[in-house]
Design a protein around this nucleic acid. Structure first.
Lengths: 369, 369
DNA sequence: GATTTAGTCTGTAACGTTACAGTAAGTTAT
DNA sequence: ATAACTTACTGTAACGTTACAGACTAAATC
């Protein structure tokens, strides 16, 4: 149960503290502390002697816990993920986001603490309550997630990503609706009239399968909900009934799920001539399904992805996809959080939108006549 | 400079503590603490009342710093990376490793703190010294890296990955030499006699370019050094002089660098008929270079990768590569560390080797005659 | 009726650090 | 010669928590 059953002693017995180093040198503990934290407060000579005796006694620098308690600061920012961490690492888009975040925290000299959203079902708020962090980045969580409330309650500086601002908590994201609309319009302009959509999760709870029209509007996860709205607007504008466009919801954004989704969509009659996937990962699964069924992409089937992960340029065929600046998103979110930590005056309320663009590659073509 | 210039007050003024909650209810602070940490130590009724008043006063649970100081435990494990964190996230192999680590820490209910190895040049040991962690995973660092010494000096439970055990610190890795030998033998068995090798970094300092024979043995980074040894043994056994096999060292393991490397190798006369890349990322760059030069893979050029990242199965052509259980590696390393945290009796000295295997796909074929 | 056991709750003393206010001596300016 | 700085160091009081040893009651056992 508990992580520490055994005895809790350092090999050498007791832990060495500033006090002991100070005693050994006949100076004040403050001076030892200053040797590590404010070199300008003592002579270079004494500082050197402090380090020497510290090393001799086995003191390895200020204890993080004592320092944290005193300074009320951890020099760490937390990132809160919707699902288990291992899911985040399996999602290239999330990884690119983290790449950007890590750039921001590194330039500020902070550490990066990853916090799991708990096993998919049970939302365990313990980790977020007990985390020693100065601020937190909330990544793509449902608006009604108890984890978000737990984070907000701690009144830590925070930034939310891919979701509307909450109270005074600023946000960073893209225009999901507009972007998806552009992607759909690309297919419509190529003459496709029978589309299929592969979406990822629409709400907190997990499910896979076809999405009935009445459920489409009720998404609590902003990205998928807004994107479906964008597609709906595009097809309606083209004179196609949105209710007639089949939408498949995947529980996780993976090639395997995307393949399952494509199999379901492509077995319908009439068969779609184009599939729009709301993530590249799922689009790769769509490509695989098409190949397996014997459909040629883009001749028999056009496929559009969303994200433009690096692999999209290398797939067979190269994927037409909606580019989203994932790294930049992480960088901006991280910087926004760091700014809050520094200035303590939240520029609040602010919502930052990053630009997207359609990248046309080899997976889309004119609709077959 | 400092992260906190401004005033450090909670919106509501002072921070609420267990003491205040206790005072409000006329009970002992210990009891309030117990309400959160040891529910069996008080009546369900009182516990409920504690939570109520806590909420009323704005107390959001035990402060992580105070708790950490008292318990001498953070419930967090750190992962130490060789380079900047953003580099780690850009490397799929490192990400898969993290996926495994996160699985291990989640099953133990711990957080995951990522620690940068500092900007490539300057090794900043500050982050590792000041990190509030219970243990640390040291990922693929050079044996002589000052960061490793800093970590070891703190006498934290630790596990090193892809590198020999240090003192009593156990390790997890693969048989790099044997694995690389298998990969090379595959090419030799296909009749290739003119090989080229694309390696990643051999030592702590960063450089790119051809590797002269005398430098090949002096690698301080275990994976690349051992793998080159494996290739050397394979080619020597086939009657080829290792000194005649061109080796190109890339500063980072990326497609772009791999492409540059391949361009250098393929412009040599006589041109290699097979290239062995020590990572899939670099192999993808080799494929790209070949296509651009007008060489067909595998007809004109065979390419072998190393890692078997998921994308290897989807590239054009699908990549023959040496499979390495990255996720498993992270999982085992994480579990080993957690075991140390729990039992405090390091099973020490232990070195765990995971199994690898060659996965033959479409990027290798018989040597052209 | 005496003794044990179990269930609740309490008081205090660390945990290791650094912010802050201050002292004492030396240096420079007026 | 006095005042005003500067440099180098000191002492103490928190920071917020929980481990630990016990105390008090009520119920169970002999």
């Amino acid at each position: 149960m508990d992580v520490n059953e055994g005895k809790r002693k350092t090999p050498l017995g007791r832990r060495v503290t500033v006090k002991e180093v100070a005693a050994e040198l006949g100076i004040s503990p403050s001076t030892v502390s200053n040797a590590y934290n404010r070199p300008d407060q003592l002579s270079a000579d004494l500082r050197e002697r402090v380090f020497e005796t510290a090393h001799k006694l086995g003191y390895t620098g200020p204890d993080p816990f004592g320092r944290g308690l005193r300074q009320r600061r951890a020099n760490v920012v937390g990132v809160l993920f919707r699902d288990r961490l291992s899911y985040a690492f399996a999602d290239p888009a999330a990884v690119l986001f983290l790449e950007g975040v890590s750039e921001a925290v590194e330039e500020a000299g902070l550490g990066l603490l990853l916090l799991p959203g708990g096993s998919l079902g049970g939302r365990d708020t313990e980790a977020i309550r007990a985390a020693a962090v100065d601020g937190v980045l909330i990544h793509s969580m449902a608006a009604d997630d108890p984890l978000v409330s737990a984070a907000i309650e701690r009144r830590l500086p925070a930034v939310v990503v891919d979701q509307p601002p909450i109270g005074t908590v600023p946000s960073v994201g893209i225009d999901d609706e507009g972007a998806a609309r552009v992607a759909a319009e690309h297919l419509l302009e190529l003459g496709h009239r029978r589309l299929g959509v592969v979406s990822f999760r629409l709400a907190l709870e997990t499910r896979s399968g076809m999405v009935e029209p009445q459920r489409r509007g009720a998404a609590t996860l902003r990205p998928s909900g807004a994107r479906l709205r964008g597609v709906a607007k595009a097809v309606s504008a083209a004179g196609i009934s949105w209710d007639d466009v089949p939408v498949y919801e995947c529980a996780v954004s993976s090639p395997a799920e995307g393949k399952t989704a494509a199999e379901a969509l492509l077995s319908r009659d009439p068969r779609p001539t184009a599939i729009l996937a709301l993530s590249d990962q799922m689009a790769f699964g769509v490509l695989e399904a098409a190949t397996q069924i014997g459909l040629s992409v883009p001749d028999d089937l056009s496929v559009v992805g969303f994200d433009d992960v690096p692999e999209a340029a290398r797939s067979a065929p190269p994927l037409t996809t909606l580019h989203q600046p994932h790294v930049e998103k992480g960088l901006q979110a991280g910087r926004k959080l760091v700014a809050q930590l520094r200035e303590e005056d939240p520029d609040g309320q602010e919502e930052l939108f990053l630009l997207t663009r359609l990248v046309v590659r080899g997976s889309t073509a004119q609709a077959p006549s």
